[in-house]
Design a protein around this nucleic acid. Sequence first.
DNA 1: TAGTGGTCTAGACCACATA
DNA 2: ATGTGGTCTAGACCACTAT
Lengths: 255, 255
Amino acid sequence: MTAAAIPRYRQLKELIIRRISTGELRPRDRVPSENELVDSTGVSRMTANRALRELNDEGYVDRVAGVGTFVADFKAASHVLEVRNIADEISLRGHDHSANILLSSETPADAIAAAALHVNINAPLLRLRLVHMESDIPIQLEDRFVLPEFAPEFLQQNFAGITPSAFLSSVSPLQEAEHVVRAAMPDEETRNSLNMEDNEPCLVVTRTTWAHGQPVSFARLYHPGSRFELSGHYAPPGAEAASRRPEHGARQNES
Amino acid sequence: MTAAAIPRYRQLKELIIRRISTGELRPRDRVPSENELVDSTGVSRMTANRALRELNDEGYVDRVAGVGTFVADFKAASHVLEVRNIADEISLRGHDHSANILLSSETPADAIAAAALHVNINAPLLRLRLVHMESDIPIQLEDRFVLPEFAPEFLQQNFAGITPSAFLSSVSPLQEAEHVVRAAMPDEETRNSLNMEDNEPCLVVTRTTWAHGQPVSFARLYHPGSRFELSGHYAPPGAEAASRRPEHGARQNES
DNA sequence: TAGTGGTCTAGACCACATA
DNA sequence: ATGTGGTCTAGACCACTAT
């Protein structure tokens, strides 16, 4: 009521986001309608509408006129986070994903990981190195560091069934991501792991993901230059119509 | 009035966007206030508010409570378009930009450019090759094709003062962009033009830009792997607060 | 003091889906 | 027929900024 506090539409949004992230509302579940929110929380319909409309704009829910509002499913959610799951990308292309774990241990932070995760050098981190295969062809070497406090059970997961990124998302919604893309020659170990030609460069993505306003994971992702590319598409929010191009061949989306 | 038509808040948005793109409203100019829109167009204040609020969310304008609404300046506008101008990036880093033109001519479309621009192979295109220098160090080789109908006077520009991308934006606002990023070894000409080491890979960005719902320009951008990287940051629309990291060293932003 | 954006209300009409 | 989202109105109170 008093305008000094957090606006009511914002409180509504956070309430619903909380219900989603705790799992109380699952993908494709129905979210309370505007009228139900009016009745249950006492706000006016315009306020309920704004909350749900913004959640829709932000990708958390899908609204269908005449039907209802529903929690966005996993694909849409990963779009919101802009952290694509390589297993999903591969299956979108109709191929099989598998993973070879190279290393799984607690290791001291190196200088770069320490800086990215805001911890001291040599602070203990959970480290996982694995190769993602697309129909048995290696496509990504993932070298990941995770803050132990964030996901103590990280290394105990069976990463044949879930990617590290997907597991971390399940622990807590990842709120922010920063990535850097560059081209570099691989060292010999990386080249061998990815079954690359001599003189073939890597597309290297380093990504830091945030949860609870803190960096919780840092990953270096190495991809064979001849078998991998990133693509992104931008259209201004207003212009929905124009050009809908189909997804292309063997590439990983990014945006 | 009749709800079958385009919503009034949307008409208002398009009206203001048109005033901006025609130059009638320039960056930092004051945009009509909510009350002025109420008086001049007859909508209610909530409707005017929604139009201006969405324009703010989309980056077209900046709103300051108690002060007014203003056209976003160039930096924000280029963010909206997600087509960064390398000259601006370089000057943001406090360095000087210059350009060496390698080629400027009308040439027949090759297979890739033809596909990207939706024209036949060998259709006449305006082609420009130039090297962008950051403080006299080559940082990008731009190989660009432009649809003659879109900008017949393209090759007559003086690209010492304006980048090709900026010039094209000035011809007509670019509405959409698609880019693909990959790592590849340069051919010898490219390596020499960019003053690269032997065995140094390129970060290659291919970008197609749309205007009027049509692809109008296609560019291949080659960057030395050792001196260039792309970075992107994502935060969900709601979470403004959390982590504002400073801009890093010698890199080109992308998002 | 007057103007601005930020929010909120309690109604209203509409097109559309579902039952 | 009912419920849904989509939009719109004509007021209102607030905090803030500028004069």
